[in-house]
Design a protein around this nucleic acid. Structure first.
Length: 548
RNA sequence: GGCCCGUUGGUCAAGCGGCUAAGACAUCGCCCUUUCACGGCGGUAACGGGAGUUCGAUUCUCCCACGGGUCACCA
């Protein structure tokens, strides 16, 4: 096919396209951003729930852009009609919003913002066609009339012959057909896709430096990949190259599963005369497969527990998830956090060259630890607000109790909070209810089996005696001194050190005495500081519980 | 099968030619302590294997093994 025929073919394929690549360049001028500002994007497809992996990448995108004074935008990759899910876009936006990852530009709940739209790929069809037409005209693309069946049997033959799979070389059956033959097919109305005419050769290697993986030596691409599907919608590969060029993306963050197609993309950037963005191919988040016991990539289908909604349901604060992800991203984050406990998350100097090239295993226990620390830094007020809003959605009964007397709830949550050695009782908002249940008569229930091994009679006497001397006005020291003073009456030892030296000399210790009261009042063997608990419960309720 | 990426303790990880190979989580022990937490101190525990380069390799090169990814008109 000579150049004239290519031009004619281009016009035949895209009769309605009158604009040129130059027109597109003019419509999407380079961004006017300060030196070093990075432009990043999240480009999910609306195929269902958002995954931890999506958040992982998005966090990198967001930090890179906002740390450099650049732009972080959202593009919707809705080119796959078959997998699209109703309300998918809304889910995406809300999921990211829950983690305070707010795009500066792109698709929003109602419409879109920004000058580089449309941000939905289906709405950019004409733009892709402009470039596709140009490629056809230049001989860099051509129609292919193979049916899916033909492609399948080709693949089967390749497998049998142990050859490389795909559409290339002798298998690129429509690559070098005559102009007449192609036109005849077109006249017949045969469906077709538009393929890239790859100038590559697999005996050539290309060098590329990835910001995460480092120096790479890759095999050149020789596959004539599909640019436009038979419905005229682009494949990811083509859309990626066109969009990220036009929208001015400077840094593409994506999972390493894209590494094999990188040569393909680089090649297209070159043929189109675009400057390629910098790439960050992030390591996959892994998990141990419970069935096989081996590490494997997190999968949307197999691991619903890693959907972002899972964390919300259990009540992991979004800040916890973010901080955990950041410890995976930049391992020096923990150190930084320890040195700057009160600093806002955004002030951490995130760096791409600290990112690990190997895959990380998602570790729920580590998340738990990070989360406990995050929550321990919150004020009682903050914890209250967060728990209340979580409970509103996931445990309405508890929410009702919590909000009945906000001051009371906050006072409970304030126990042991703040100071040098804060309690770390909660990793998730789910943990709060069991922790504070005995403060509410509706939830209180006494587990007598937790009582220390003292004679029943002694227990009764302790409870009775304590009623007589209990005074809510006592401070912790006075309160405890009173307990010690009681010990002698039951043959208990008031001095723990002495008791430990010779336990057999006593019936028990002040620890046992405290435990009797604790179990009676809180219903269990563990609780925050008993004196404070009593103060909050109030004299009347304390006495009532002692009577049982 | 081709191509590509990866491999430091149970987990996440520092390391970027010379170190008694950090730290965190988990785990175990001790201390503090009226319980639980918190906190403090300490312990167990690692460079996948083999060649080579080098005075010297966890670090560089090659081979192998293992793990992972990918080869769609899905992204």
């Amino acid at each position: 096919m000579d150049s004239l025929q290519c031009l004619e073919l281009a016009n035949r394929l895209f009769p309605d396209i009158t604009e040129t690549p130059e027109d597109m360049e003019a419509r999407y001028p380079a961004r006017n951003l300060p030196e070093g500002a990075k432009v990043t994007r999240i480009a999910p497809s609306p195929t269902g729930f958002m995954h931890l992996g999506n958040l992982y990448g998005a966090l990198v995108d967001e930090r890179l852009a906002h740390q450099s004074g650049g732009v972080f935008y959202l593009r919707i990759e809705d080119t796959d009609a078959k997998r699209a899910v109703e309300g998918g876009v809304r889910m995406i936006i809300e999921a990211f919003r829950n983690f305070s990852l707010i795009p500066d530009e792109g698709a929003t709940i109602d419409g879109e913002i920004g000058a580089y739209g449309p941000y939905y790929q289906r709405q950019r069809k004409e733009i892709y066609h402009v470039f596709a037409k140009s490629l056809v005209a230049r001989g860099y693309a051509y129609p292919c009339f193979c049916t899916e069946e033909e492609l399948e049997s080709m693949r089967a033959r390749q497998e049998a012959a142990k050859e490389n799979f795909g559409y290339y070389g002798p298998y690129a059956v429509w690559r070098d057909r005559s102009f007449e033959e192609v036109m005849t097919k077109l006249d017949e109305g045969t469906p077709y896709v538009v393929r890239f005419r790859s100038p590559g050769d697999i005996s050539h290697k290309i060098r590329h430096t990835d910001l995460v993986k480092g120096k790479l030596e890759l095999t050149e691409n020789d596959q004539d990949l599909v640019l436009l599907k038979s419905d005229g919608i682009p494949t990811y590969h083509f859309a990626h190259v066109i969009d990220d060029h036009l929208m001015g993306t400077t840094h593409v963050v994506r999972g390493e599963e894209w590494l094999p197609t990188l040569p393909m993309h680089l090649q297209m950037f070159q043929v189109l005369g675009f400057k390629p963005p910098k790439y960050l191919h992030t390591a996959q988040l892994m998990k141990i497969d419970p069935e096989t016991g081996s590490k494997r990539k997190l999968s949307k289908r197999k691991d619903p527990e890693l959907a972002l909604s899972f964390y919300r349901q259990q009540g992991y604060p979004s800040a916890s998830v973010l901080e955990y992800l950041m410890t995976m991203l930049n391992s020096n984050f923990e150190e930084w956090r320890a040195a700057n406990p009160a600093a806002p998350f955004e002030s951490f100097p995130f760096s791409t060259n600290k990112m690990s090239a190997s895959g990380g295993l998602f570790d729920l226990e580590k998340l738990t630890d990070v989360s406990k620390n995050v929550i321990s830094r919150m004020s009682a007020e903050q914890v209250y607000e967060e728990v209340a809003s979580w409970a509103q959605e996931f445990d309405p009964d508890f929410a009702a109790l919590l909000t009945r007397d906000p001051a009371y709830s906050k006072a409970i949550l304030a126990i042991g909070r703040g100071g040098k050695k804060p309690r770390k009782d909660f990793a998730r908002w789910e943990d709060v209810k069991p922790y504070m249940s005995f403060f509410f008569d509706e939830l209180f229930c006494c587990d007598r089996t937790q009582m220390p091994a003292l004679p029943e009679e002694t227990i009764c006497r302790i409870l009775e005696d304590y009623q007589g001397i209990y005074d809510p006005a006592d401070d912790n020291q006075v309160w405890f001194d009173k307990l010690k003073a009681m010990c002698g009456r039951y043959g208990l030892c008031a001095d723990m050190k002495a008791y430990k030296k010779d336990p057999s000399a006593y019936a028990g210790s002040v620890a046992d005495l405290s435990m009797v009261l604790r179990v009676a009042i809180t219903g269990r063997a563990q609780s925050p500081d008993l004196a404070e608990v009593c103060r909050l419960l109030g004299r009347e309720r304390v006495l009532k519980r002692l009577c049982r």
